[in-house]
Design a protein around this nucleic acid. Structure first.
Lengths: 343, 343
DNA sequence: GCCGGATCTTGTAGCGATTTATATCACTCA
DNA sequence: TGAGTGATATAAATCGCTACAAGATCCGGC
């Protein structure tokens, strides 16, 4: 703290106190250039900085270096329980490396997405983590064109050569289907998530492929427009109109699974007695629900943290082998799935 | 985009294209100074800026103005389901006014809190929203000393004169207790949240006061160290050792209530048949739980949004009457509370 | 026809950091 | 002895924007 004026302490105040040039102070306080200053000088400067309560003005350093030590994160909606853990993974990892995180919700709306990106560009972010990617994504294309370091998380794009941390959706869906078949289910339906998202698309594809492989009916699929409870509800009802002889549902994600269960209850159907349900993501509190939802668990925190590490490596020019890191999900069996019973 | 070099477009590029001085461009593009430039000039400049894909370098403007159009937000932990909605309220409101939000998790740890604040200071935040306040809070004191615009949300401090948006805890607890008494409960216990937090403290105080007023036993209180499921679990067990004749529990918040229910199940007690439980906050999915948790609902999104509006008013020097905005909570009765039965 | 004032635009000087080039040593060694 | 060499420190320029002072332009009015 500068005791005379109200002005914030700057590098020049520190320099004055020590009796050196301010550029020397800059060097001494910067990890990368510290070694060009004599150790005792560094110590003196650090002491003085401490005493004056100096902290760097990041705007000034950003302006000069064109490097902000800030990362952008684009998510659909923070209130969707998948994201808080991913974001904590990102924030914890980023902060440990001295980076600040700017988060924006896009609600899967291209205008909001564009606005958020513009704001982030204005703030000279050093890199971007995108959890909102569509399979064809113009924003991702733009980042690549501009050369902005970019990592995808959760959702991927169709084009190759973009780094990201995603889930082995095939593995998860196969585990779910095997579990259901093991319980005797032979007629299984899928409430698919939006197909513009790789998660929705790949889960539906895995569903079809795996059932086909087992010579089972693979076209009991109804497509939702969003990954929400409401869309799960609506889509399930639609499915029921088409066909009501299935005994199990694989939902595109957990919130949609909850919507399905709501719709079932509304129709007087019971879960799991009449229909078994499997979700996806393993969001919080699922084990406490009624019924406790069987689901495919994905390592959310780890995904955020890995994506951030990846991004920081790209920013720092560290060579990396893996482009697309595919995390292993894990089926968690709870009470929303049960052996099929003759009706 | 500047087509010749790889450099970002600046106001000078725009100025050059239009054939005016760059300071004119700055004026024309700034809402506050736009009226000092002729309308047709403004239009020409805007057109040129658009054409060149110009967007302002916020670091430069921050450096010059000592104003970042960024707000800091301090929360305990994003993965605690109370916060996502509060934060969305903050973000949506802030973004609508052109502000960016920097969020940091403190895990109720003073070191992390201090680090986060230092980072935010370095980024020259224009104001701070604190959801981590302790009743005696040195960080809050520091902000006030420094004159940094500050608004509390959810938790308040003991000292007067600090703006904030909080909940009328007394009202909520009274509603919960009245509900329980109405169901015939005469021996009610409280699993209190940490007393350093105004929420924990005021809820416990309201509990004592209201029961005393009704000439009921008011000291069946056990204090938890954190607002977590685990602490709810531990504290409930502790309470049970002390006294096992209560028929209802008012928990400090929802997560602690869930911990209580876990502990009850572990002890072979049923909720609500043996013991009724009331939570607080109304976090997501409570209505789907088993049993569905009766709780006190607080307007989370609205609180975030109001706090932000308050903060922006302070920043902009708008006079405000209310210092401490007290939101009305609402009891939501579900199936974790039931009439008391003779045992 | 020229002055006073309103209206618009220009010029310039930083904001606080980093960075490149330059200066100043203190030594070594031919 | 004096040029060469590291090792440190200094000077000065710069990042892009805004604010303040000053200049240019135009107009009506006496």
């Amino acid at each position: 703290m500068n005791y005379l004026t109200n002005r914030k302490t700057t590098i020049r105040d520190v320099a004055e106190l020590v009796g050196v040039h301010h550029s020397t102070v800059s060097r001494a306080l910067n990890p990368g250039t510290k070694d060009r200053i004599s150790p005792e000088m560094v110590r003196k400067i650090e002491k003085a900085a401490e005493k004056l309560g100096y902290f760097p003005n990041i705007a000034a350093s950003t302006l000069k270096q064109n490097r902000s030590f800030a990362l952008g994160v684009l998510i659909p909606d923070l209130t969707n329980p998948v994201f808080p853990l991913i974001i904590r993974g990102i924030q914890d990892t980023a902060e440990a490396e001295g980076y600040t995180v700017l988060t924006a919700n896009t609600d899967d709306d291209e205008t909001k997405e564009h606005d958020a990106f513009k704001m982030m560009s204005g703030r000279s972010i050093d890199g971007l983590i995108v959890a909102t990617a569509r399979r064809q994504d113009s924003l991702v294309d733009e980042c690549i064109k501009r050369g902005l370091p970019l990592v995808l998380v959760n959702r991927r794009v169709d084009r190759e050569g973009v780094s990201g941390v995603i889930v082995d959706e095939d593995f998860g869906i196969c585990a779910a289907l095997d579990h259901l078949m093991h319980l005797g289910h032979r007629k299984i339906a899928h409430i698919a998530g939006p197909q513009y998202s790789s998660t929705g698309y790949e889960r539906a594809k895995a569903f079809r492929d795996h059932l086909t492989l087992h010579n089972m009916e693979a076209d009991l699929i109804e497509y939702a427009d969003k990954f929400t409870v409401e869309e799960g509800y609506r889509t399930f009802k639609q499915l029921l109109v088409r066909d009501n002889r299935f005994t199990a549902i694989v939902a595109g994600n957990d919130t949609m699974a909850l919507g399905c269960i709501d719709a079932m209850h509304k129709q007087g159907l019971r879960c799991p007695e009449d229909i078994s349900v499997v979700g996806n993501n393993d969001i919080i509190f699922l084990s406490r629900m009624n019924p406790a939802l069987t689901t495919i668990s994905i390592p959310k925190y780890e995904m955020g943290s890995q994506a951030t590490r990846m991004l920081l490596d790209i920013i720092n020019g560290v060579p990396r082998e893996t482009m697309l890191l595919r995390m292993q999900p894990r089926l968690i069996v709870r009470s929303s799935t049960a052996p099929v019973v003759a009706r």
